[in-house]
Simulated scan of single mutants.
Amino acid sequence: MNNFSAVSSLLDNDFYKFTMQNAVIKLFPFAKVKYKFINRGQHSFPKDFSKILRENLNKMAYLKLSNEERVFLEKNCPYLDSSYLNFLNKYQYNPKEVNIFQKGENIQMYIEGLWSNVILWEVPLMAIMSELYYKLTGADKKISEKKITNITKEKLEKYKKLKVKIGEYGTRRRFSYRVHKIVLKTLINEGDSFFIGSSNVHFSHIFSIKPIGTQGHEWIMFHASKYGFNIADRIAMENWLNIYRGKLGIALSDTYTSPIFFKNFNKKLSNLFKGVRHDSGDPISFAKETIKHYKKFNINPIKKKIIFSDNLNPYKVSCISSFCKKKISACFGIGTNFTNDIGFPSMNMVIKMVKALPEEGKKWISVVKLSNVKEKSTGKKNMIFSAKKILRI
């Protein structure tokens, strides 16, 4: 087990972590944050899990951006400028930023430090935890490449019939690195023109495809700690535009519920952003609301897009695409259903920002995510109550 290594490249991470890191360095270079591991699925972790996890984290300190990887980013992501790529060239994971505790079958984990440094931990950490969990419970010994390929092909056939655009978003809760690679290879070989890419930058490099993604909830959660709940969405979007000048123009819609997002998504932003991402709540209701919102500003919804990314499978995609047809462009980011659907229950866990220190010398502020569904909300109960009161939810 000591030879086990689930992450072997600095780029084995979701693309939006790098795009956010670039923006953080430029706008909030001295901000500090704290993240917490949340075991939503109440998984029981095997004995010595934290010890083996720690060994893996320590190995990550040796990961470096290769020249070949830098060239890939320069060619495929021109909006990541040379100052950021120079930063990434020197970047190293610091395992001291991660504190792990195991008591019986429970794991507690916190990550703390400069936001520009610790932002990259979340996704590879979860990928390691997921793979390690299946290895230590013996599940990984029973899977053949043929089985993984066939399961993926079966889904692809359904998506082909629906004629929908799909992307792969499944790094954080993948069954294993090996399964992820086989799934992606199948998607690329069999996906024809409707497979739009992967959020994983390392695999995008290996398979010579463009990585996909924009920003995550933490981007808006941090803005709430600095500017307040009411205008967090708007300032987060404006800052994003200032950094990327219209590139990576998909706005995330549910950090403080969609109604609050749409209040912030004014005419200027609605025009400048190419579309929105849906990540919680009823997708059809959200599509209706989005179409109504664009029409209010005399914007033709068919020229805009919604990227759906909430726990998707072929049935859900079928329902959503059927509704959106000829009304608004729809794309689908499919995660765990691609990378961890091989006969074992998938893990339900997240790592979320819980505190922020926007400026040195100020107090740490508890941050929350409200989401469109109660189960996906995160943060201290009193802060969630306070945020709902301020936002009149």
Rank of each mutant, 00 (worst) to 15 (best):
A251I: 08
K268Y: 11
K267G: 09
H278V: 02
G335Y: 13
S285L: 13
C331H: 10
L312R: 05
F222C: 14
I231P: 13
K296G: 12
F261D: 06
V350S: 01
P283D: 11
F273W: 06
K295F: 09
S285Q: 05
V276K: 06
S280N: 08
F286C: 10
P314D: 03
K267D: 01
A224G: 15
K303V: 05
S258E: 06
S285I: 05
L272A: 11
I235H: 09
N242T: 00
K226P: 01
I307V: 15
A224S: 15
D279Q: 10
N266L: 02
I306F: 15
F273G: 07
C319H: 02
I284R: 05
I250T: 02
G249H: 07
G275Q: 11
K288G: 11
L312G: 03
Y315I: 09
G343H: 12
K274D: 00
V276P: 04
K288Y: 12
I284E: 07
Y244D: 03
S225L: 08
L269Q: 06
N242S: 04
F262L: 13
K295S: 02
I284H: 07
G249N: 07
F273R: 01
S321C: 11
F344E: 01
T257G: 07
S270E: 03
I260H: 10
I299M: 08
C324S: 06
C331A: 11
G335W: 11
I342A: 00
I342S: 05
N298Q: 01
F323I: 02
P345Y: 09
P301I: 01
E238G: 08
D341G: 10
K327T: 00
F323Q: 04
V317H: 00
H223P: 02
A330Q: 00
S322F: 05
N298S: 07
I231W: 10
K226S: 09
K325G: 01
I306P: 10
F265S: 12
N271D: 05
F338C: 12
I291C: 14
G333A: 15
H223F: 13
